[in-house]
Computed example of a mutant assay.
Amino acid sequence: MKWQSALAIYVLFWWICVFFVLPFGVRTAAEAGAELVPGQADSAPHNFDIKRVAIRTTIVSAILFGLFMLNYYFGWVTTDMLDWAH
């Protein structure tokens, strides 16, 4: 696999992992004991830390991408194994 293809696949893993990681560790204003700003939704995060989300996302996506690459090289699961129609 070319490095450009691997990089594109990693970026896809990273963006998918953002949506998995995003809700973890989020506290609302009510949970944090803070007052709501007028017009603020009750479910809005109290203190959103983009750096923490980026670090967690990078770690999770690196692990998943590593498993993907290992499967690519060693062929643990192939498309032939997933073809249940035959």
Rank of each mutant, 00 (worst) to 15 (best):
A62T: 10
V77I: 14
M81I: 06
R56C: 06
A44G: 10
S43I: 14
G39N: 09
F13R: 04
R27Y: 11
P45M: 05
V77Y: 09
R27H: 13
D83H: 13
F65C: 02
V11F: 15
A44E: 05
F68W: 09
E31L: 01
W76Y: 09
K51M: 12
A34R: 08
S61T: 07
E35F: 00
I50E: 11
L36S: 05
I16R: 00
L7N: 01
G39E: 11
L22F: 13
I16G: 06
V18P: 00
L64V: 01
V77H: 13
V21E: 13
T79N: 09
L36A: 07
F13L: 10
Y10P: 08
L22G: 01
N71P: 12
S5H: 03
G39K: 11
P38S: 06
F65G: 01
E31A: 02
S5R: 04
M1C: 06
Y72R: 10
T28E: 06
G66L: 11
E35M: 00
A41S: 12
A32R: 14
V18G: 07
D83C: 06
G25N: 07
Y10N: 10
F24I: 14
I59P: 09
F19M: 13
R52C: 02
L64S: 02
S61E: 15
F68H: 06
I59F: 07
F74A: 11
H46C: 07
D80G: 10
A6M: 04
G75Y: 00
K2I: 04
G25H: 05
L70A: 09
V60K: 04
Q40I: 06
F65Q: 04
V21A: 10
Y10C: 15
K2S: 10
K51G: 04
W14Q: 12
A6V: 07
A6P: 00
T57Q: 08
Y73F: 04
I16Q: 04
F48M: 15
F13W: 13
F65A: 01
L7S: 03
W84R: 10
V53R: 13
V37L: 10
L12P: 04
M81T: 09
I9N: 15
L36I: 08
H46I: 01
P45H: 05
S5A: 05
F68G: 04
A44P: 04
F20L: 14
D83F: 08
F68C: 08
P45I: 10
T57K: 12
A54H: 13
